[in-house]
Design a protein around this nucleic acid. Sequence first.
DNA 1: TCTGGGGTCCTAGGACCC
DNA 2: TCTGGGGTCCTAGGACCC
Length: 404
Amino acid sequence: MEKQILHIDVNNAFLSWTAVEMLKQGSQIDIRQIPAIIGGDESKRSGIVLAKSMKAKEFGIRTADTIYQAKIKCPNLKIFASDFKIYRKYSDKLYQLLLQYTDKIERFSIDECFLDMTYYLMKDSLLNKAKEIHKRVKEELGFTVNIGVSNNKLLAKMASDFEKPDKIHTLYPQEIPEKMWNLPISELFMLGKKTVPKLYNMQIKTIGDLAKTDQKILEKKFGKHGIMIWEYANGIDDTEVKYEKENPKGIGNSITLPENITDIKKLEELLLALIEQVTYRLRSYHLLANTVNVQLRTKDFEDTSHQGKLDYPTASTKEIYQKAKKLLEQMYKKQIEIRLIGVRVDHLQSKEEQQLSFFESKENEKQEKLDKTIDELKQKYGYNVITRAGKMKIGKMLKLKDIE
DNA sequence: TCTGGGGTCCTAGGACCC
DNA sequence: TCTGGGGTCCTAGGACCC
């Protein structure tokens, strides 16, 4: 049976949601109607454009521009800080509304969902349902969405990306030559800035060119990726809407520092602060990590990372910190100026699968209890209420955000 | 000019074993 | 002394997404 798929994409999500929240708080202006952006903080060296209004777009401002560039393009630009608590709130409201149509919803990102409507359409058509959702979101939630309508996820996603904002588009298989093949390859999902120039050199410029290229040639040049982009160009995608909540495959935290650092002691303190957040999230999923990965970025934007296996699966702040500290020592070369430090844990497993280890000692039990107690206090009184060595001053320095 | 943060998946190459 | 392949596991780094 042919699948019936919708892709819902919130228009300028961070900016629209901020606008709705401001209006609710009594603001007289709707920042969607003026040149405005949501951006990072230049003083913390995270000054890029995360979202823009249509008016800002008219000035040539693009997502991921630096705020510096954006202000040159539009001196009157209004800039608002990002606030993920607000985004989470409106994302949840959208999800609750969509649940009235199907429970087969994949939350692809904070502002995008796939809906599998295959078994939920009685006599109505998929397009009519899309129209109803489109109207209700605007009227009841106060922001607009684009909706893509098709028989698989890839085509629905491509369709929702056509003309914006506030539009519904279909892209059924028979419409591919007319609606998709004339587009430049850069518009195809999963074709980024590294692959596009390589295809251009092969005289492949439109999605149609790619669709008609011999799959073998693409496979030889790009491996698995080559097969996938050929299938995408031909509208082929048989992946399912993943509506069941899945555990993450890895959890990480990283931070761009307000100033470059050369002092390894400082880096170690930062590492501990980052690991506290990572392990807190890890424990809240009831997961254990098998590997730790430490990442450094130099002032020249050179990235290096080192990964190491833990002696046994763990979610302990102390255990993971000890390993991470060793990795940091291995990789950090004296005097190199560090711009960013990050840590992530991978190869996660659920606590139930834990093999009782020979190494599990009294000391570990003690650590586990300590972590648990701290987590409970954090849940009760807020994330920043209790910290380990050095965390307070680092927290202040970085203005580490509360996590939910 | 200055360039975020959080993810997933893939690949190349080295170590080691048979 | 010099010579094979195949398989597995591991790590570093890259490409892409929002």
